[in-house]
Design a protein around this nucleic acid. Structure first.
Length: 620
RNA sequence: GCGCUCGUAGCUCAAUGGAUAGAGUACUGGCCUCCGAAGCCAGGGGUUGUGGGUUCGAUCCCCGCCGAGCGCGCCA
């Protein structure tokens, strides 16, 4: 069983130390990025040259940061700086002239062959061949640690929490959950690789009405098995898995939970048309179940919960998505945290009573309207437990708490942040990332999706059709705030065209070459790289060197999709080179240099794919 | 109506405020006696929905309009 457990439950509450100064994530990343390459940082070297030149050209100008970017076009060199363009405004001078003066004042460097002014005033640097290929040795020395963010330096790493999926355990996970799972898992891996201590958490909504509805749904199906049919409400859970649960209960306990249908029906209010009536009728059925079953209701309830949770968990495990903590909503009630959280807000004057209900004054924090935390019947709303849950997260000492939510929850953000602020917490420590919807298309038609009706394609079905690797990679092929149209027929019938195979194929090809060479791969780390001279070889090296920067940038932006796109580009650079130049040539020096480049490429492919939860096959 | 997320090649999607807006797919034409052709090379394809504004420079930032999805409950 993955995940730490406590009290024989799946819940785990950590008693972490509290850390008080939540600096912004991006600042930390900026600080660490400069030390990402332990051997030699070309970017820093060039920045130093520019700073020297700047000091003599414009001593008065102090720029906080010198930007060096990798040009898209090879003809623009290996690095470009827009320093002159930035200075133009303050110096009120022609950017090209500034750039030319800067270039004249650049100190000589053993790594730079050319520094020239281009375009509107860019300064383009071209590196020596040795500087361009040095990354190969760096990759081979670092191995699977290449690209990893800096280690702890003796100090505690920044602690982050990523909470994702958190689907109600009321039915199988669907393809929308799958997107949240793939995104959250990749994001968490990415952040961990970038140098953070990451906790992956699933919030289990095991309290509340939805679970009761699932329990009563299973019970009604169970009664049907004993010829005690109660008309099945249209707003109860319709899925086939509910029948299976009923059958399981019958096999385990026989007729123990059977009550006459008449007895159940007697508890119901007279039937009236209307949606409100349907909900009231469902609630009455739940009450009937609780009354008739007494203590046994708890069994049904916990049975359907544990069955559903186990199913979700197994599904996610097979998908390569793992959690450190499964946090129980119910535990927040059992330990009194919900009541305490609401009481604290009440004491600080952020809660008022109206119409018998308790309202949180979220309008004071930018929300559209105030929100109920406790209903007139005394039952807390989901919002109340969510306040307690987020306060609990903060108490556990995370420097940053990242929630991955479905886009339909976006209206929820202001009230949660407002409640945190009202509770004296720093709402800036909470980042909410919204994942847009997935629409499925089958036979050219949009598949209607409704959890309640049970009419939806499950994540498990999708994985079986498309495969885990293609599934994980496909989900990462668009940024999370972009709606995704998932054509099932296309994903299935044209799976060979899926980009994941393109990337995996590059990996398999390299494995094949290394196998044919049949030499000592470890020795390649010391290979002389001077024979690497073709443009495609330099381009591939530049792509490899980009990997650590990309990790930091993608982590800063919570953008694991950038990693998928990078891997596509990397595979493309490799295939181009591989098709143009032969690796296993007769010349031993050239052969070893190219083998080293191939091996370094394979290493980065492995590092990247494993972060996305995609396998790296030796052959396909 | 109000709010949030968006609008980029025929289609699916990229692009820390930077240079001629890029890939894949589809289409056209080439490349296997040669390390894996699930690959490579070349080509056509665009007023970045639209109109303004800020800037040396806008797909990106600000405002209006048009269009799409989602949200607006004492549900979760």
């Amino acid at each position: 069983m993955p995940g730490r457990t406590i009290n024989g439950q799946y819940n785990s509450r950590l008693n972490g130390n509290t850390r008080k100064h939540p600096e912004r994530l991006c600042i930390l990343l900026y600080m660490t990025a400069s030390s990402a390459s332990p051997v030699f940082d070309v970017r820093q070297h060039l920045a130093g040259l520019l700073r020297t030149a700047l000091a003599s050209v414009a001593p008065a100008q102090g720029l906080a940061e010198i930007v060096l970017e990798r040009p898209k076009q090879a003809s623009h060199g290996d690095f470009a700086s827009n320093l002159a363009l930035q200075l133009a405004r303050e110096m009120k001078s022609n950017p090209r002239q500034i750039a030319e003066r800067l270039v004249r004042e650049l100190p000589p460097s053993p790594h730079v062959t050319k520094a020239e002014v281009a375009g509107a005033g860019f300064i383009n640097f071209t590196l020596t061949p040795a500087a361009r290929t040095a990354v190969v040795a760096t990759v081979l020395a670092a191995g699977h640690g290449f690209g990893r963010g800096p280690a702890k330096n003796g100090r505690a790493a920044r602690r982050l929490q990523v909470e994702f999926v958190s689907a109600n355990p009321t039915g199988p996970l669907h393809v929308g959950h799958g997107r949240g799972a793939a995104f959250g898992a990749s994001l968490a891996s990415l952040l961990a690789f970038a140098g953070f201590e990451v906790t992956r958490e699933y919030y289990v909504n095991d309290a509340g009405r939805q679970m009761d509805i699932l329990a009563v749904s299973a019970w009604l199906r169970y009664l049907e098995l004993f010829d005690e049919p109660v008309p099945f409400p249209p707003n109860a859970y319709q899925g086939g898995y509910v029948h299976e649960m009923a059958e399981q209960i019958r096999q385990a306990h026989g007729d123990r939970y059977v009550h006459p249908a008449e007895a159940v029906l007697a508890c119901l209010p007279p039937h009236v048309e209307g949606a409100d009536d349907a909900e009231a009728r469902l609630d009455a059925l739940i009450l009937a179940g609780k009354d008739l079953l007494g203590e046994d209701w708890a069994y049904i309830h916990s049975h359907v919960l544990s069955e559903q949770l186990a199913d979700c968990r197994a599904d996610l495990e097979e998908f390569g998505v793992h959690f450190d903590v499964w946090f129980s909503e119910r535990s927040l009630y059992d330990t009194g945290m919900v009541a305490r959280a609401v009481a604290a807000l009440e004491k600080s004057g952020h809660i008022y009573t109206q119409d018998g209900a308790k309202w949180f004054q979220s309008t004071a924090f930018g929300d559209e309207k105030d929100r109920v935390v406790q209903r007139d019947n005394g039952i807390y709303t989901y919002f109340a437990s969510d306040i307690a849950y987020h306060l609990n997260k903060f108490e556990r000492g995370f420097d940053k708490v990242i929630d991955v939510w479905g886009a339909d929850h976006h209206g929820y953000i202001p009230r949660v942040k407002g409640a945190l602020s009202a509770s004296g917490a720093d709402a800036g420590r909470l980042d909410v990332t919204l994942v847009q919807f997935v629409s499925l298309f089958r036979d050219g038609q949009k598949v209607s999706m409704s959890t309640r009706s049970g009419d939806y394609v499950t994540l498990r079905q999708l994985r079986e059709e498309v495969g885990n690797d293609a599934c994980r990679f496909f989900y990462m092929l668009r940024k999370c705030d972009q709606a995704l149209d998932f054509d099932l027929d296309l994903a299935k019938s044209q799976s060979n065209d899926n980009p994941v195979y393109y990337v995996q194929y590059a990996h398999a090809r390299i494995c094949s070459v290394l196998a044919q060479w049949d030499g000592d791969a470890a020795a390649l780390a010391a290979a002389d790289l001077a024979p690497l001279q073709h443009e495609r070889e330099f381009a591939l090296c530049a792509r490899l060197a980009e990997f650590p920067e990309l990790i930091q940038q993608a982590a800063r932006d919570y953008a694991p999709h950038a990693l998928a796109f990078y891997l596509k580009d990397l595979a493309g650079d490799f295939h181009s080179w591989y098709n143009a130049e032969r690796v296993l040539v007769d010349d031993p020096a050239l052969r070893e240099a190219r083998l080293a480049l191939a091996l370094a490429t394979r290493q980065v492919l492995q590092n990247g794919l494993s972060l996305l939860g995609v396998s790296q096959p030796v052959s396909m």
